[in-house]
Design a protein around this nucleic acid. Structure first.
Lengths: 194, 194, 194, 194
DNA sequence: GATGAATGAGGCTTCATTCAT
DNA sequence: GATGAATGAAGCCTCATTCAT
């Protein structure tokens, strides 16, 4: 005796999320089938449906779990004065949050068309706009708004597009952060020499 | 003359491309079926196969047509001296090219996961890297490389992410261009004050 | 006293039958899933299996409970002389039995295709034929046999098809009973003027 | 050479309808799967979807084809004076129509729960009420309304419930028709001796 | 007296693709 | 230059049922 059929451990839900996120990030949402997820877990498709109502629900649950830090970040930001220090701190923390949930962010970046139509689409949009609102001055001119958006995208890029650039990932993240801070600084204090 | 409103023959191929790109950009590649394309054109699916070998082939053909200006841009860039003027001009031209082929760029931005696995994935990657190569100095430090990537993404953002920002599209494009130029300028001439 | 609003234990079996019959009658047998029944009871599906062997078993148990009056009616009829009074009394009692178990009769009427294949199919058939046998004369001509069948169906109709006719349900039942009696009377005494 | 793969005759649509109706009538709608229909036709399931949009659409198309005679019958009835002759003629024609489309009527009788929820449910209900309206006097008392409903159900019974009675089908139909006429006659001319 | 976790079978539907005409 | 008919693979999802706890 020894290994009975299967330990039937209570962590199946978590394992589904992990495997699913891995595949979603790697192949895309639509190209990942539930069959594939189930097989990788050595479970039947029906088992997935015991834990989640639909395929989309799997993604939503992953998103809700990993998204919490960002929500908290925004909530924190809203309690702070809109100083340059706060903004810089926001970028730092956001960069860290992204690094912690890298696969999810990669997924969202690479599957925008899909994500847009899913129920999380709005949430994401609100979140980005919320972050930008914390980073830009209320009546910032268009150019400064663009700087703030760019700062955020630069952080994303630090994680994604720079994969094709040689160098240590952590260093690339740092460099992206530096550029992002620079953009936000310039937007914060318009008098800086053009 | 006497041109009745008959469906001008001979342009079906073009019409397929137009409709397909519209749907690909709007809904995503996988979520757009050939049935949908055919119905919108009031043609049968089989007709699509008369003009294109596969679904992917439709996309590839669109890409090849609309991508030519960018290829030419890179080719032109390679003949020019790597001055700031050249770089600025490259950004201008690239921004224009994007505006001319907006749906295609939107599609590529929002369907990265899909595009990556398709035959055009490599082409796109090479193209971006080629552009960055023209824009950055050969041995630029990491931070400057990031600036150059960011400049490019900023142009994309000017077209896409800024949709949720109020303002005239053309002005947004201009603003994005301004920020992009700024980033490249800074990367070009490191002595610029912090 | 002291009866807190706790779910009275011990009556789960009954509650399952009630809810199941309600849903079976409302939606049909195949379109009602055990999940639905369980959810409406705020119990798990597995709980249903503690009380019943199979889905069909739930239906069978309902049928057996509610069908008893009809069995007794037939048994009673078999002890009576085959007079017109007896027949009339049978129709009255049958009509009452139907009113008491309306959802079950509705279910059987609207799910004949399903019921036929289930184990209760034969029982029902025998029961109807048994009733007709009590109501018609042994060697009645075909037309009179039809009258007897019609009498029975008229009672059913009084409960079901007449839902779309305005009027008090009880009055409709009475009217149906009157017509049924008339049909059986005519079958009983062939000399009645054509 | 000789028999090529399959004649690919253009009657597939019709064949699907025939086979489907046969199975629907025999086993019920829900218990008949598209797989079963396809196999019986030696076609793939996907072929069914070339000809019909959904499973329900198959049924609807069958219904629409076979229902036409009844619609015409009602239309005809509405142009006639509401005499007893007209009513009798209506019953005759309706009985014939039922005999011509026996499987469909059997299906509708035995799958009421299913049919009710399908798009044809309302059509059927309207049709029955329309027929009754032609057969009963405008302000007929409840009992006479019941007689008219009963007349219709008797015709159905002549086709269905009487299967378990010995005798030639055609004779049974005649007998049912006779009883139905009798019921309508009685409803038409209330003075008839009770 | 009931739950939590899972299964195996099968349901309907959609898709990209083919090919004879 | 296109259609009509069909296919094979696969998709998501639901169901009745089981069983250890």
């Amino acid at each position: 005796m020894g290994s009975t059929p299967q330990p039937r451990r209570g962590n199946t839900r978590q394992r589904i999320q992990d495997v699913a996120l891995g595949l979603f990030a790697e192949q895309g949402y639509e190209k990942t089938s539930l069959r594939e997820i189930a097989e990788k877990l050595d479970v039947t498709k029906a088992a997935l449906y015991y834990h989640f109502k639909t395929k989309e629900d799997i993604l939503v649950s992953i998103f809700e779990d990993l998204n919490r830090p960002v929500e908290e970040l925004i909530a924190w930001g809203e309690t702070q004065p809109r100083t340059l220090e706060t903004k810089t701190e926001l970028l730092h923390r956001y960069s860290n949050a992204m690094a912690d949930a890298a696969p999810l962010f990669r997924f969202m970046q690479e599957n925008q068309a899909t994500v847009r139509d899913l129920s999380i689409g709005d949430t994401i949009k609100h979140r980005v706009l919320g972050l930008v609102d914390l980073i830009k001055e209320p009546d910032a001119p268009l150019t400064d708004q663009v700087r703030c958006f760019s700062a955020l995208f630069t952080l994303h890029a630090g994680m994604l597009a720079l994969r094709d650039v040689e160098g240590d990932p952590e260093e690339k993240r740092k460099a992206a952060l530096e550029v992002a801070v620079e953009l936000v600084t310039r937007a914060h204090d318009p008098e800086t020499p053009r």
